[in-house]
C-alpha cells in the first residue's frame, strides 16, 4: 500500500512539473493579440470540429457538444487548455490561438445555441444512471451528481452543463479525468471529481452518460 502511495506521489510530482513547464510556455504564447480574421472566424474555426451550431461531432475522437454549455465553463476550459492545466494535444495549441479577450464572445455564441437532446442510445443503463445522478453510490463514496450539476444537469457558471452532451464524450471525460484535469482539480472547484471518477466502474460511467445525454 505504501509503495503504491509512493509511486503516486512521485508521478504526481513529475506530472505537476510537466504541467508547470507547459503552463509557463502557454502563458508566454498567449499574448493579448487578436486572432486572425477576428472572433467570427474563430467561431467558424471551432464549428469545423465541434459541428455546425456546436452540436458536437463523432470523429475518430468524440468532439463535445458546445451548444447550451455554460459560458463560465467554456471560458474556464479555454484558459485551462491554454495554460496547460487541462492537458490535451489538440486543444492546447487551439486555445492558445484565441485571444483571452475573445473568450466571452465565443462562449456566449455557443451558450445560445439549441441544446435539445440529440437522441441515439449509448448502451448504458438509463435507470441506473438516473439513480447514480440523483442518489450517488454511498458504498463507493460517489456523491450525487445533481448536487453540483443541478437537478436538470444544466450546470451553472464554471460547472458544466451535462444535459444533452454526447455520451461517448462523457464516458471519455469520466475515464481520463486525472490524466487531463488532475492538476486543476488539485486546487480547484473540481477536486471532488478525482475520487468520484476513480470510484466509478465503466458500466456506471456509461449509465450516467446515458441518463444525462437524454436530458433536455
Amino acid at each position: 500500500m505504501m509503495a503504491i502511495h509512493g509511486r503516486y506521489a512521485l508521478s504526481s510530482i513529475a506530472l505537476a512539473t510537466a504541467f508547470m513547464a507547459v503552463g509557463s510556455f502557454g502563458s508566454a504564447l498567449a499574448g493579448p493579440r487578436e486572432s486572425s480574421g477576428g472572433v467570427q472566424a474563430k467561431i467558424e474555426y471551432c464549428e469545423t470540429c465541434h459541428g455546425a451550431s456546436g452540436q458536437g461531432f463523432y470523429g475518430y475522437y468524440a468532439i463535445p457538444r458546445l451548444a447550451g454549455q455554460q459560458t463560465g465553463y467554456i471560458e474556464d476550459q479555454l484558459r485551462d487548455f491554454s495554460h496547460g492545466e487541462r492537458h490535451t494535444p489538440i486543444m492546447g495549441p487551439v486555445a492558445r490561438s484565441v485571444s483571452p479577450s475573445e473568450y466571452s464572445a465565443i462562449a456566449a455564441h455557443f451558450h445560445a445555441m439549441n441544446s435539445a437532446p440529440l437522441g441515439g442510445g449509448s448502451g448504458g443503463n438509463v435507470a441506473l444512471g438516473r439513480d447514480i445522478f440523483m442518489n450517488g453510490i454511498p458504498e463507493s463514496n460517489v456523491p450525487a451528481c445533481w448536487a453540483c450539476h443541478g437537478q436538470d444537469a444544466h450546470g451553472a457558471r464554471e460547472i458544466p452543463r451535462l444535459a444533452g452532451q454526447l455520451p461517448s464524450y462523457l464516458i471519455k471525460t469520466l475515464s481520463n479525468w486525472y490524466e487531463q484535469r488532475g492538476t486543476k482539480s488539485a486546487h480547484g472547484l473540481s477536486a471532488i471529481m478525482v475520487p468520484t471518477t476513480h470510484n466509478l466502474t465503466r458500466a456506471q460511467m456509461a449509465a450516467v452518460a446515458a441518463y444525462v445525454s437524454g436530458l433536455r
Binding site: Y60, P89, I90, S97
Partner: peptide, 19 residues
Amino acid sequence: YQAGEPQANIVTCVVCHGP
C-alpha cells in the same frame, strides 16, 4: 496533420481521421 495551424484557423486532421 497532427496539430493543424491554429493561428491560421487550420484544424487538425487527427481528430476525425485518427492518429
